[in-house]
């Protein structure tokens, strides 16, 4: 009994130590601080940022009628530049239907299924990324404002636990790079602080737009861990934690990353 108590105390101490290693609030910097000036210039020029092509596709889809109800997003939500302003700053978010958080992509698909009565768009499909990029673009410059109330806290904590957990053949955790070694180089690139304010991003390596889940799966295969499937609750928890980590920071979506 006494030994169990001691073990629990030790575990609690270890957990506290892990949390204490988190980046101090005032030292947080956007991921765009860790890319080259050229990539940053590309991101901030709407003609040079290739993700703007996806944003334009998304705008067209927003106004396209779909599903059994033959309604477009615009038929209910109107002008996205007004109705979607700030929406992306609040995702992932809890939804009553699932007792779980969903990310922005999943939220768009919920609306397609329930309101438009259309088929869900596959993860990482051109159309889903385009719609997400278009919605996220409307929040550019606005502070991340995900909820961290009692309902959401367990999921944020689960995400943080996954972030701190060693995984894969390299036996690495996300935190070992992004909490302990940010600002240092990994394979020629600066390690950012993992502040996901720019998703979906145009990644030069991909030559395409991709979601945060794709990026997370990328890091997992880099650690030689088996990545969670797209849409897995673990990935959404991780996304939730990361957005909470970036709370108050300005949205940059759609960002350009190397």
């Amino acid at each position: 009994m006494k030994r169990t108590a001691a073990a629990i105390a030790a575990l609690a101490a270890a957990a506290t130590a892990a949390w204490a290693a988190e980046i101090p609030f005032e030292q947080r910097r956007p991921d765009s601080d860790f890319v080259s000036a050229d990539s940053r210039a590309m991101q901030n020029d709407d003609i040079a940022n290739p993700a703007m092509l996806a944003v334009l596709d998304g705008e067209a889809l927003w106004n396209t009628k779909a599903g059994e109800t033959n309604q477009s997003c615009a038929d209910c939500h109107g002008d996205a530049t007004k109705s979607m302003k700030g929406v992306a700053t609040r995702y992932p978010a809890m939804v009553a239907e699932q007792d779980r958080p969903v990310d922005l992509e999943q939220r768009i698909n919920m609306s397609r299924l329930a309101d438009q009565k259309a088929a869900a768009l596959p993860f990482e499909s051109k159309d889903l990324l385009a719609l997400t990029a278009y919605v996220a673009r409307q929040s550019r410059g606005m502070p991340v404002a995900v909820k961290d109330d009692a309902q959401a806290k367990p999921f944020i904590a689960a995400g943080r636990a996954l972030f701190a957990e060693r995984q894969g053949q390299l036996n690495l955790s996300c935190a070992q790079c992004h909490d302990d070694n940010w600002g240092r180089t990994l394979a020629g690139n600066l390690i950012p602080q993992a502040m996901p304010t720019g998703y979906p991003i145009y990644r030069l390596e991909w030559q395409a737009v991709g979601s945060l889940q794709r990026r997370l799966r990328n890091c997992m295969s880099g650690m030689r861990a088996e990545p969670y499937a797209l849409g897995a609750p673990e990935l959404v928890d991780l996304e939730y934690y990361l957005m909470w980590r970036a709370r108050g920071m300005a949205m940059e979506a759609p960002a350009v990353r190397p």
Binding site: D45, I47, L56
Partner: peptide, 27 residues
């Protein structure tokens, strides 16, 4: 394909103007 073009809407005669184009293509 989706394309984005930037041409300054107006310029003075003799000005050197920058033109920027971006087009969607897999290459």
């Amino acid at each position: 394909a989706r394309a984005l073009i930037h041409v300054p809407p107006s310029a003075k005669r003799g000005d050197i103007v920058e033109i920027k184009t971006l087009i969607s293509h897999v290459m």
